[in-house]
Design a protein around this nucleic acid. Structure first.
Ligand SMILES: [Mn+2]
Ligand SMILES: [Mn+2]
Ligand SMILES: [Zn+2]
Ligand SMILES: [Zn+2]
Lengths: 156, 156
DNA sequence: ATTAGTAATGGAAACCATTTTCAATAAGGA
DNA sequence: TCCTTATTGAAAATGGTTTCCATTACTAAT
């Protein structure tokens, strides 16, 4: 992990410190990993990758950090139906594009799509507003996911 | 559970038998429960309710039946983020209205909304079609869920 | 009705992602 | 430095879900 001079890491630092938490080596490593990887990683995936460089960071800390960052709104917890949670940087963080997911129920492959997103987002905003007023909810997030069979899986 | 003359149960029977499975007492009980209840029940919820009338139906069978019915597309498996799966009758089955969910991350309360649905469904269909063509997926379902804090939970 | 083959079942045990406990350590402020 | 609090890792516990396995219920011939 490069030493902390790029924009991203300062953003993290401010955000984490601003909420009264410390940016420890483990937390920094996890944020660094999530920001450079394009995959949707599980806690254990992250633990494994982190472990080579930071062999002192335990799985428990990974779980704790993921929960913290999730609470701070810096990352998103995703469920693709395979029994383990996946994580990705939240949109709005260093140029993460708004996107949704297409999940194969056969092989658990996940496709991120950014097409059609503009209309979706527009409608989502509208809906969100309507729901907030009608049900007195303070809406903080949404999930849009399509599920089905990928080409490989539908051929058998 | 009323004896099997109403439309619903015949629909089940046809559907289940049509796929080469039997409509056993346990399966019938679970379908009956899901079709009369408006809640989103977990496997254990279902087991508890079934158990009073059908004390011989075990939790394992409940799980198995839920998986089967889910595979047959007769029910939907939902995840509201509280660590246990919930189930509801799939849309299109005996007048189940198309609806989406609004989940409180504070108390796990779930609101079903049917407002705004028309536009959503229209856009979903469009998007689905586009995605199927572009990514060669055979799309079978979608999830739209908003999360946030309900009025009670946002006041503290 | 008997038989044989298969589907379905329940209870116990296993599984496994996540959480909790707890004692140790690190960091920061007075 | 001393004190308070935040953070940590290892091990154990938790709890929803699956798997095993021996038994039972169906079904379709014979
Ligand atoms: Mn993604
Ligand atoms: Mn519902
Ligand atoms: Zn696939
Ligand atoms: Zn609430």
């Amino acid at each position: 992990m490069p030493r902390g001079h790029c924009r991203g890491q300062w953003w993290w630092r401010g955000r984490v410190y601003g909420c009264g938490y410390r940016l420890t080596a483990g937390r920094e490593a996890i944020l660094g990993l999530l920001s450079t990887s394009k995959e949707h990683m599980s806690a254990e995936d992250i633990y494994m990758k982190i472990h080579t460089a930071y062999s002192n960071v335990g799985l428990t800390t990974v779980y704790r950090t993921l929960e913290l960052l999730s609470d701070l709104g810096m990352i998103c917890k995703l469920d693709f139906g395979d029994g383990r949670a996946r994580y990705e940087l939240a949109e709005g963080v260093q140029g993460v594009r708004h996107h949704h997911h297409l999940v194969c129920t056969g092989c658990n492959r996940v496709v991120e799509y950014t097409d059609f997103i503009d209309k979706e987002v527009e409608l989502l905003k509208e809906t969100e507003k309507g729901l907030e007023e009608k049900y007195h909810f303070k809406i903080t997030g949404h999930v849009i996911q399509f599920s089905g069979l990928c080409d490989r899986c539908s051929c058998k």
